[in-house]
């Protein structure tokens, strides 16, 4: 361009003033970008909330046919001691009949099929399903009518998924660690 070097009007080649504009703008954008992560991340679970992430449970408290509800991560946790009939019902279901196909064996620990541990939060919108109700012998969610079977799998209603099985391991025959 033929403009003189003293022209700062912003035409033609980038000159020193343009550089200052761009540098100042970039610094402002960078500063804002650096402020956003802390402001957003403070909303995530705090360290003490995360520290509550695992719990232990004494299985001798739950007897055959019973369900015990404990609180884990602020949500109810169902600990079921299933009867042989209920276990058989759960195992005999054809996977093709299921909305969210999963074998009963994949939801319990081998050799301890009687203990079913579930997050007691309906996969539709998070209500607490009622034990011993519904068309499939398992749970029924009163909010929008989802039916779960004796393995906690979704059989009927708006919920898309089976009741979640948390990570758990047996510390001994009667002690289980969840989370």
């Amino acid at each position: 361009m033929s403009e003189p070097a003293t022209d700062h009007g912003g035409h033609g080649d980038p000159n020193r003033r343009d550089f200052i504009y761009i540098a100042a703008g970039a610094a402002a954008v960078g500063a804002v970008a650096m402020v956003i992560p802390p402001l957003v991340d403070q909303m995530n679970p705090a360290a003490d909330t995360l520290a509550l992430a695992s719990t232990e449970f004494d299985l001798s408290k739950v007897q055959e046919g019973m369900q015990v509800v404990i609180k884990w991560r602020g949500k109810p946790l169902f600990v079921r001691y299933r009867t042989p009939k209920e276990i058989k019902e759960a195992q005999d279901v054809k996977l093709t009949d299921l909305k969210d196909p999963q074998a009963d064996a994949d939801r319990v620990k081998k050799g301890k099929e009687q203990y079913l541990i579930l997050v007691g939060s309906c996969t539709h919108l998070g209500c607490v399903p009622t034990f011993g109700a519904g068309d499939y012998g398992g749970w029924f969610c009163p909010c929008h009518g989802s039916h779960y079977d004796t393995s906690g799998r979704i059989r009927k209603g708006p919920a898309p998924l089976n009741l979640a099985v948390p990570d758990f391991q047996f510390l001994s025959d009667t002690k289980v660690k969840i989370g």
Binding site: M43, N44, P45, A46, T49, A53, R73, G74, K75, S121
Partner: peptide, 10 residues
Amino acid sequence: TWLQGGFAVD
């Protein structure tokens, strides 16, 4: 989780 600030409404 971000909205609730935990794993449940608390």
